[in-house]
C-alpha cells in the first residue's frame, strides 16, 4: 500500500473529487437523456407493476408534425424566435459593450443596469410583464419607419418589425453577453488602437479590422450561451408543449419525450450553425 505509486494515488484522489459529479452525470443526465430517446419510440401504459412500454417506431414524431394541430405552429414560432433573437442579441450586446468600453463616466452604473434583468428574469415574471404590456416601451405605430415597413412584403419587413416588437425582451436577454464582450474588449491593448490611428485608420476600419477579429472567440461563446439560454427558457413554446403533454392521457410520457428530442436536436442544429459560421477560418486552413 505504502509502495503504491504516487501517480496512482493522485489519480484516485482526483477521481474522488470528481465522483459526486460523475455519479450525478450518469444518473441524472446521461441515463435520462437516452431513456427519453427510448421512450419517444414507445407507447407507455401504466400497470400495477409500474410502466409497460411497447415499441411504436416513429409514431409520436409523425403525430407531432402531421396530426397535432398545435405543435407545428409552436415549433416554427420557437425556430423564428431563436433564429432571429440570437443574432440580434449578439449584435446589440456587442454594440452596447463597445459603447460602454468608450464611456469615461458612469460605466459601472450602466453595466449594473444592463445586467439587472439577468438576476430578476424568470418565466412567470416575463409572462406577467408581457401580458400587462410592461415590455412595450413605445407604441411602434407612432414611428413612421414602423408604418412604412409594415407596408412592405412580410418576408422583407419581418425581421425589422420583430426588433420593434421585441426590443426590450432582446435587451433583457443580453446582460451576460454584454459583460462577456466587455471583458473581451478590455483585453485588447489600447496601443493597438493608437497604432492604427497613427496609420490613419478611422473608427469604422478599426472595428472591422481590429476589434471584430480579436473579439471573435467571444462571439462564438456568446452565441452558444444565448442559444442554450433561449432554448431552456420555460416560456419557449416547445418547452411549454413538453410540460403540458407529459400527462397527456392518450400518450403519457412518450409524446413529451419525442418533443424533447425534437427540441434537443434543434438546439444542437443551432449550435452547429453557430460553429460553422463563427469558427476560426485561419485555423481551419
Amino acid at each position: 500500500m505504502t509502495m503504491m505509486k504516487k501517480k496512482t494515488r493522485r489519480a484516485i484522489t482526483g477521481y474522488i473529487f470528481v465522483m459526486p459529479w460523475l455519479i450525478g452525470f450518469i444518473l441524472l443526465t446521461i441515463y435520462p437523456l437516452f431513456y427519453s430517446l427510448f421512450l419517444s419510440f414507445q407507447d407507455v401504459n401504466f400497470s400495477t407493476e409500474g410502466i409497460k412500454t411497447t415499441f411504436v417506431g416513429l409514431k409520436h414524431y409523425n403525430y407531432a408534425f402531421r396530426v397535432d394541430t398545435q405543435f407545428p405552429t409552436l415549433y416554427v414560432q420557437s425556430l423564428i424566435d431563436i433564429g432571429l433573437s440570437v443574432p440580434l442579441i449578439i449584435i446589440f450586446s456587442l454594440i452596447i459593450a463597445i459603447l460602454l468600453n468608450q464611456a469615461f463616466f458612469g460605466r459601472t452604473f450602466f453595466r449594473a443596469v444592463y445586467f439587472l434583468p439577468v438576476v430578476i428574469i424568470s418565466g412567470p415574471v416575463l409572462s406577467e410583464l408581457l401580458t400587462n404590456r410592461a415590455l412595450s416601451i413605445v407604441d411602434p405605430n407612432s414611428f413612421f419607419v414602423y408604418r412604412f415597413l409594415s407596408t412592405l412584403p412580410s418576408f422583407i419587413n419581418f425581421p425589422f418589425l420583430y426588433i420593434f416588437d421585441n426590443l426590450i425582451t432582446i435587451l433583457w436577454f443580453s446582460g451576460v453577453q454584454i459583460v462577456f464582450f466587455l471583458a473581451g474588449l478590455q483585453r485588447i491593448s489600447t496601443n493597438i488602437y493608437e497604432a492604427a490611428q497613427i496609420d490613419g485608420a478611422n473608427a469604422w476600419v478599426i472595428f472591422w479590422k481590429i476589434i471584430l477579429p480579436l473579439i471573435k472567440p467571444f462571439v462564438l461563446v456568446n452565441a452558444i450561451y444565448t442559444i442554450v439560454d433561449l432554448s431552456s427558457f420555460p416560456n419557449n413554446p416547445i418547452n411549454t408543449s413538453i410540460a403540458t403533454n407529459m400527462f397527456n392521457f392518450q400518450r403519457p410520457y412518450a409524446y413529451s419525450s419525442a418533443l424533447a428530442w425534437v427540441h434537443f436536436l434543434t438546439t444542437l442544429g443551432f449550435i452547429l450553425v453557430a460553429l460553422l459560421l463563427l469558427r476560426d477560418r485561419r485555423r481551419a486552413l
Binding site: S231, F264, I271
Partner: peptide
C-alpha cells in the same frame, strides 16, 4: 451545458 433541462424532464420525473 448544452442539453436543455427540458430534454431530461420526463425520465427525471419517472425516476
Amino acid at each position: 451545458f448544452i442539453i436543455p433541462v427540458q430534454v431530461t424532464y420526463v425520465p427525471k420525473y419517472i425516476l
